[in-house]
Simulated assay, not measured.
Amino acid sequence: MLNYNPQQRLPTSEELPCSDDTPVDHELQNTIPNLLRAILLLIWAAREDWFFGVDMGIYDRSRQILQTPIVPDGFLSLRVQRHKKPKGRLSYVLAEENNIVPVFVLEYVSKTYGGEYDRKMEDYARLGVRYYTIYNPDYWQRDQHQPLEVYRLTNGNYERQLGEPVWMPEVGLGIGRELGVCEQWQRDWLYWYDQQLNRYQVPEELIEQLQQQLRQQELRAQQAESQLQQEKKRAQQLAEMLRRLGVDPDSV
């Protein structure tokens, strides 16, 4: 049982462990949440009221006392500072974030089962996370679940949201899967979607689109230059014909 002492000084985010030191056992545990974060940096570039953490410890008061964080693969908080302190956040301590709980949490299920469908679900419900997303692309049959499951917290319990992508009104985003390319790797990735369930672009796609627009603009410029040269040549030919007829082309 946790002994509560209101006079007890609690460790700060700089003093707390930044993670639980559990190593990831698949590179996608970092790649997928980092892709979601990269998309947010594009679509919410002008906003300063959000933070997306990757493999970062979250502490409520009890975990702060025990110095045992809960560490999702990714999480999103709204109505918080995007950049905090010159060196950034070392962990996410609710007491230092106006007690704002992340609105979205992502867990990636890898070869080693980590309690995503039971223990962690209970932990996030207790914490008050509105949307809990479990991505299990490789072991969903083993675990007798679907590759992507999104749960919404209602009256203290998680209810699975049907359909895909899933629109999350409290977040202002949808979440879903789609075949795509990230880091030159073609596979199913998680993406954000708008309210009409149109997928947001990833940085690589935006770069390719801008490069294509630049190539098209350069081609149009080359075509315009070629047309201008042809018109100059035609004008020179007409001037020469006038001279042969005894007419000064400059007097026309």
Rank of each mutant, 00 (worst) to 15 (best):
R63I: 08
Q196A: 15
Q222K: 07
Y200G: 03
E15D: 05
V105D: 00
Q236W: 05
D49Y: 14
V71S: 08
R89G: 08
Y139D: 06
I32K: 11
I100S: 00
Q229T: 03
P147S: 12
E15W: 13
L162D: 12
L28F: 11
A239R: 01
I134K: 02
R177L: 13
M1G: 09
E48N: 15
P69L: 11
E170I: 00
T12Q: 02
D250S: 13
L210C: 01
I32S: 12
W44H: 11
V171Q: 02
Q64G: 11
N198S: 14
F75Q: 04
E14I: 07
P11V: 03
N136A: 14
T31Y: 13
Q29E: 15
L238A: 15
S62W: 06
D123Y: 06
Y132L: 05
V93M: 03
P86G: 15
M1W: 04
V202Y: 13
L219I: 05
L42G: 14
D60L: 11
D21C: 13
Y158E: 01
F52L: 12
Q227I: 02
R199Y: 04
I175Y: 04
Q29Y: 13
E14H: 08
P33W: 13
Q81P: 04
L2F: 09
E15F: 11
G114F: 02
W50R: 14
D55A: 15
Q217C: 03
I175H: 02
L228K: 01
Q146F: 11
R244V: 07
G172T: 04
L228M: 04
G88T: 10
Q209N: 01
V80W: 11
K120P: 00
M121Y: 03
M121P: 00
L76K: 06
L206E: 08
R79M: 08
P203N: 06
T12N: 02
Q201R: 05
Q216M: 04
L206A: 07
G114N: 02
P86H: 14
E14F: 15
G53A: 14
S110C: 06
P203G: 12
S13C: 10
K120R: 10
V202R: 11
Y113P: 05
N99H: 05
G128P: 01
S91A: 15
Q146N: 06
L127F: 10
G180H: 07
L206C: 04
D60M: 14
E204D: 12
R126H: 09
Q230K: 04
L35H: 15
C18V: 07
S251W: 06
A46T: 08
E27F: 15
Q67L: 11
L190N: 07
K111E: 07
G74D: 08
E204H: 03
K232D: 03
V54L: 08
W50V: 09
K84R: 13
T68Y: 11
